[in-house]
Computed example of a mutant assay.
Amino acid sequence: MSTKIAVFVGSLRKESINKRLALAVERLAPKEFTFEHVAIDGLPLYNQDFDADYPLACKHLKQTIEAADALLFVTPEYNRSIPGVLKNAIDIASRPWGTNSFAGKPGAVIGASIGSTGTALSQQHLRNVLAYLDVAVLGQPEVFIHFKDELIDGEGHIANEGTQKFLQGFVDKYVAWVKRLG
Results as ranks from 00 to 15, higher is better:
R20E: 03
L21I: 00
L21R: 09
A22K: 06
A22F: 05
V25P: 03
E26A: 15
L28C: 07
L28Q: 04
P30N: 15
K31E: 08
K31G: 00
E32D: 15
E32A: 12
E32F: 15
T34P: 07
E36P: 06
E36A: 09
E36L: 04
V38T: 00
V38P: 00
V38G: 03
V38R: 08
I40M: 04
I40C: 05
L43M: 01
L45P: 03
Y46W: 09
N47H: 12
Q48L: 02
Q48V: 08
D49F: 07
D51R: 07
A52L: 13
A52P: 06
P55D: 01
L56D: 14
K59Y: 04
K59T: 09
K59A: 11
L61Q: 03
L61G: 04
L61F: 02
K62R: 13
T64Q: 12
I65L: 04
E66I: 02
D69Q: 13
F73W: 02
F73I: 01
P76N: 07
E77H: 11
Y78F: 15
N79A: 14
N79C: 13
R80T: 11
S81D: 05
I82N: 00
V85I: 12
V85E: 07
L86G: 00
K87G: 09
N88I: 00
N88V: 01
N88L: 06
N88D: 04
A89V: 00
A89Y: 01
A89H: 01
I90Y: 04
I90L: 09
I90A: 04
D91V: 01
D91S: 08
I92W: 02
A93R: 01
S94I: 05
S94G: 06
S94C: 08
R95Y: 00
R95C: 01
R95S: 00
P96V: 09
P96L: 06
P96G: 07
W97S: 14
W97Q: 09
W97I: 14
N100Q: 06
S101N: 03
S101F: 00
F102M: 09
A103M: 04
G104S: 09
P106V: 11
G107E: 01
G107L: 10
G111N: 07
I114S: 14
I114Q: 10
S116W: 15
T117M: 15
T119W: 10
Q123N: 08
H125N: 08
N128I: 04
L130W: 02
L130F: 06
L130Y: 04
A131G: 05
A131W: 09
Y132G: 12
Y132V: 13
L133I: 00
L133D: 01
L133Y: 02
L133F: 08
D134A: 14
D134Y: 14
A136L: 14
V137A: 05
V137G: 03
V137S: 07
V137M: 04
L138S: 06
G139K: 15
V143C: 08
V143G: 05
F144L: 15
F144K: 14
H146G: 12
H146Q: 14
F147N: 06
E150D: 15
I152D: 08
D153H: 12
D153L: 10
G156E: 06
G156N: 10
H157M: 10
I158L: 02
A159K: 10
G162P: 13
G162Q: 15
G162R: 14
G162N: 15
T163P: 05
Q164W: 09
K165C: 10
K165F: 12
F166R: 15
F166N: 12
F166D: 11
L167T: 02
